[in-house]
Write a protein that binds this DNA or RNA. Structure first.
Lengths: 342, 342
DNA sequence: CTGAAAGCGCTAACAA
DNA sequence: TTGTTAGCGCTTTCAG
């Protein structure tokens, strides 16, 4: 089995031109401006292209055109103990959306000795990609600052500061959590608690804000408690303590399904039943929640719509130079299930 | 905020050469063959490169060298109802491993009108990538057949046929499940059942084979039952039926943690407790299993080692033209936890 | 409608 | 040690 070395080159435009007895330009036109060719020539050339399996070399094309049709996505560092289960679905959606427009996604990661900006700079300066897709945006994200300063196209999953390009898409977590609290208020809960992990993800702040807003709006008494990190054991321990207390809340709003899993475990350990002894709502709609008993009321992220919006905004910047005047806030999808109680 | 259009070019080798008052070749040498320059020149040029922020254009370099330093990974289509929660971790590991050697990962997906082979062909013929990383290998995988026929570098997560390049890495699922069954035998179980999903993933066959081998070796009585698809409701229903029967097994080997989740739910519904009334072992070590009560005995996939092995094999083929003479079988890591029972 | 020439940015080979 | 030449494969511009 002979392995073709990558440096061996394939069939070039020259080969096709010679075989067809025309100039290279005619081949190029057949592909890029077919209307310029006589029907007969076009047909002949097209057939030959097909037969020889000719495809324009991407590097040559990029060199000439200055465009790569590649979007870089710096992959978030994934905590091995708690890998983001939605990552696959998000990438899937992004790859599809970009693919529709003929773009591909390049996964990048700073080398151990590199800062985030350096890693971006390497791609940017080497003109390896046409733009960036960013996620897990921090309030004061150095990547956003850098790309903004460079004037390089990017789109962000997560809000950017007012002074920066508003090429962002985000889920309206505040509203979604307000709605969750509303569901609890409707069912007569007056004493609710918010369970957060304090590992500093920016979106957790929005969810907490939503909790506060919801509590205020519905005149409930709200309490907040944070678990340092998000290891299962800690979540369970913290929640047990809460549930064992005399003044325990009648409902818990978990900042994420992951945390809610700990509430299920804690409730069982305390001999309580979710949905009966304590109501529980959360956020993310992890696939696993389908197996929980009772099933979990939560908020589903519209990953597909997010990805489409991100890509279409980014491509507008790349191709038309048009930066969106404002961000896009997409509603989360409330999924009401029995953990909410009767 | 002026957005830099991608077609605007950055600083080129020419710019640096002019600024330094030397030829372009000297700049190139400073980067690629520094030993050829006089120390003083090198220092001056390097400083200038840094100052101007010059980085060689990737396309130009690729055009010249014929190598892209990009590896394509065709992303599996993810069932939205049951997205693979390990995808993120796998990609993470692959990106890291490839990054170590200066390669990046390009996510690709056939367009709706394309076959898998056509999608590969597009990348291959356009010389967009140096090689492919394949996962979810089928027994008779068309992608493997195509790349083998083309003699194009690839490495596969999952076994390829004997006549094909043995550039694969796989987990020794058979052995791992034999070991699981051994654990059950040690604890005196004589009546065990294997729970599979019949949605046709190739690795499920290996796990079933492992079950059969384990049962045979330890002289147990084994039964198998398959759930069509892997929707939670079906898994639970099928398992409940099994547990409710008079001749119920004392232990269940689930073909994956996902299925095991259904067993937990079914057991609870039947008033049984995992680890006490029925033992349970599974495969995958999904992160969520840490929250299960009792915690699940399962097999962890060595994703990091898999990724490293895949990348190093692929790079050997790409860079040295050396195809591995045989595949690499990595052991799964048994994680013994209380679901196994006393 | 088709062809010739030039050049995108880079580096390998050779020359000075 | 440095500079010059040529050419990777393609497309844009301008002639025919």
């Amino acid at each position: 089995m002979a392995t073709r070395r990558p440096r061996e080159r394939g069939v070039t435009i020259e080969d096709v031109a010679r075989a067809a007895g025309v100039s290279r330009q005619t081949i190029s036109n057949a592909l890029n401006a077919p209307h310029r060719l006589k029907a007969e020539t076009l047909e002949r050339v097209t057939a030959l292209i097909e037969e020889l399996g000719y495809r324009p070399d991407q590097s040559a094309r990029s060199l000439k055109s200055g465009t790569r049709r590649i979007i870089a996505y710096p992959t978030p560092v994934d905590d091995p103990a708690n890998p983001n289960p939605l990552m696959g679905g998000f990438l899937e959606a992004v790859v599809s959306a970009a693919g529709e427009s003929g773009y591909r996604i390049l996964l990048v990661r700073p080398r151990p000795d590199q800062s985030q900006e350096q890693a971006l700079d390497e791609l940017l300066a080497a003109r390896t990609v046409d733009g960036f897709l960013l996620s897990d945006i921090l309030r004061d994200d150095p990547r956003v600052a850098y790309l903004t300063a460079e004037g390089f196209p990017f789109a962000a999953f997560g809000r950017t500061e007012p002074g920066q390009p508003q090429a962002w898409v985000d889920v309206d977590s505040v509203q979604a959590v307000v709605d969750l609290v509303g569901l609890l208020a409707d069912r007569g809960h007056g004493e609710v608690a918010f369970l957060a992990s304090s590992s500093g993800q920016p979106w957790m702040d929005d969810r907490r804000d939503g909790f506060r807003a919801g509590v205020r709006r519905h005149g409930l008494r709200g309490r907040e408690f944070a678990v340092p990190g998000d290891e299962p054991a800690r979540v369970v321990a913290a929640t047990r303590e809460l549930l064992a207390g005399a003044d325990r809340p009648t409902a818990i709003v978990a900042g994420g399904d992951w945390l809610a899993l700990g509430v299920y475990a804690a409730a069982r350990a305390e001999g309580m039943e979710i949905g009966r002894d304590v109501a529980l709502v959360a956020f993310d709609d992890l696939p696993v929640t389908a197996f929980l008993q009772p099933a979990l009321t939560t908020v589903r992220l519209p990953l597909r719509r997010i990805a489409e919006a991100l890509v279409s905004r980014l491509l507008r910047i790349i191709e038309d130079g048009v930066t969106p005047p404002s961000g896009l806030l997409l509603p989360g999808e409330l999924v009401v299930r029995p953990s909410l109680g009767p």
